[in-house]
Design a binder for these strands. Structure first.
Length: 425
RNA sequence: GUCGCCAUCGUCUAACGGUUAGGAUAUCAGGUUCUCAUCCUGAAGAUUUGAGGGUUCGAAUCCCUCUGGCGACACCA
């Protein structure tokens, strides 16, 4: 039975890298009809951010990453204490009362009966495991491994103890986690060995690098929170699809996947070993693809949420605008600029106009008043089609790049359109 | 500094000893069009796979060295 877990700490919103870890972890389990477990690692009281456990769950659900079981580490303290006692009595751990950062802590030989509990790392041994992401054996000489703290003096375990105890207790079959954990893996290997039981397979994902700095994504410089992207007009399914291919690829180079399709096609051999860069270009392309796949009604609904002015328009107008915008936007939030002229008369920069704009606008006004189709105006007056419509476009919208102007005028209505044109004569 | 991971078009990647090193995106050009976008077509883009050595009839693929990038070195996760 494949059982995997996603184990975030409740210290804030869901990070884009964590979302990807959760996605792969989910796919690994579900591809094999296994179970996906959510484990909240709240063993550091100081760093905990109120409400983030709930926020994390809400976000995960938005992406369709639904868990089968939920555990909260702070409710399982007894388990960790018991494990620590076992390690102590087996001679694999010791009490420590100092804050020395030496490889071999001086409290090792003090025989304290209380304090924090540290791992007693053995000398001259090699610890190793097979990484299923990197597809290779990785090993360390224990002489380079420090005596990590397992249980803090406040009675809470560190990750090094809690996660291993839980992975064993929850019968996790595959640990899939961030690359930043790779260096502390030898400590975990030792803990697993001393605790006994069946050690899960372990795999370390790549880090997602910033396109600008080439370093790990940072909260200060880069957009890193999943919710941020959604607020900015990125569809969850587009973000998810983009993230899928940052560190994983199928043999046939297919790019468009729903979550279900991804789970179906998922193969651990597709994991990438090199760190990918997060470049927004491709994300926006995915987003455009997904926007165009939306039904008019659901895109309309998203526009309503994104823009209050749009939501006030009549249903017919909303739908018409939605249809005009669908092929023209890369983000939901693009509606704010592209369609602004529908609910706000523009301040027109007259230097944008061509030479004959007053003639063009005058004839346009006549046509609109008499309900003559605007398409006929250039023909009848010998105007250049492009020039005529461009002047009209600028007068109505204040911009040079807009949805088709004929349809836009229809949506805007006769009165409002005439008002905007007459002002410029 | 110590330990570890990594290295193919700008970017995401395919090619797991034999291909003119392929695709996508981004870029540029053309077509469609009232602008833009969508859509279609094409081009360019890897100084031939970071560099240098091997192994082999044959290397992007295997080995070694170097260089470079990233990461971890907490009673945070």
């Amino acid at each position: 039975m494949t059982r995997t877990r996603f184990a975030p700490s409740p210290t804030g919103f869901l990070h884009i890298g964590s979302l990807r870890t959760a996605l792969y972890t989910y796919a690994l389990a579900k591809h094999n009809n296994g179970e996906f477990i959510l484990r909240i690692e709240d063993t550091d009281q100081k760093r905990e951010v109120e409400g983030s456990t709930e926020a994390l769950q809400t976000t995960l659900k938005k992406f369709g990453l639904v868990w089968d079981e939920l555990y909260i580490q702070s409710e399982r303290l007894d388990l960790y204490h018991k494990a620590a006692k076992k390690l102590l009595s087996d001679g694999h751990a010791y009490y420590c009362q100092c804050d020395s950062q030496e490889l071999r802590n001086p409290c090792r030989d003090k025989n304290y009966k209380e304090g924090a509990i540290r791992l007693k790392v053995p000398e001259n041994q090699t610890v190793s495991y097979h990484d299923f992401v990197h597809k290779k054996d990785i090993s360390w000489d224990t002489n380079t491994i420090y005596d990590a703290t397992l249980l803090k003096s406040d009675g809470f375990p560190t990750y090094h103890l809690a996660a291993m105890v839980d992975d064993l207790d929850m019968k996790i079959s595959h640990i899939l986690r961030g690359h930043d954990w790779l260096p502390s893996t030898p400590v975990h290997l030792l803990v697993f060995e001393y605790l006994g039981g069946v050690r899960p397979e372990i795999g370390h994902l790549t880090d997602i690098l910033s396109a600008t700095t080439g370093k790990k994504l940072s909260k200060r410089r880069d957009s890193v929170f999943a919710e941020q992207f959604i607020e900015d007009g990125i569809l969850p399914e587009a973000l998810l699809n983009f993230i899928m291919l940052l560190g994983w690829a199928p043999k046939d180079n297919r790019e468009l996947y729903t979550l279900e399709e991804f789970v179906q096609e998922f193969d651990a051999n597709g994991f990438q070993e090199a760190n990918p860069r997060f470049l927004e270009d491709k994300l926006l392309w995915f987003n455009g693809e997904y926007i165009r796949k939306l039904t008019d009604a659901s895109l309309n609904a998203k526009f309503q949420i994104a823009n209050a002015k749009f939501a006030e328009l009549s249903d017919e107008k909303q739908l018409a605008i939605t249809q005009l915008l669908k092929d023209r936007i890369k983000k939901i939030s693009d509606i704010n600029e592209l369609a602004k002229f529908f609910w706000e008369a523009p301040v027109v920069d007259e230097s944008l106009f061509g030479e004959n704009y007053k003639v063009h606008l005058t004839k346009a006004i006549e046509a609109i008043e008499k309900d003559i189709p605007l398409d006929q105006v250039p023909k009848e007056n010998g105007f250049k089609v492009g020039d005529f419509f461009m002047d009209l476009r600028i007068a109505i919208t204040g911009m040079k790049f807009t949805p088709p102007i004929n349809e836009s005028i229809e949506i805007l209505g006769k009165d409002e359109s005439l008002k905007r044109l007459q002002k410029l004569i």
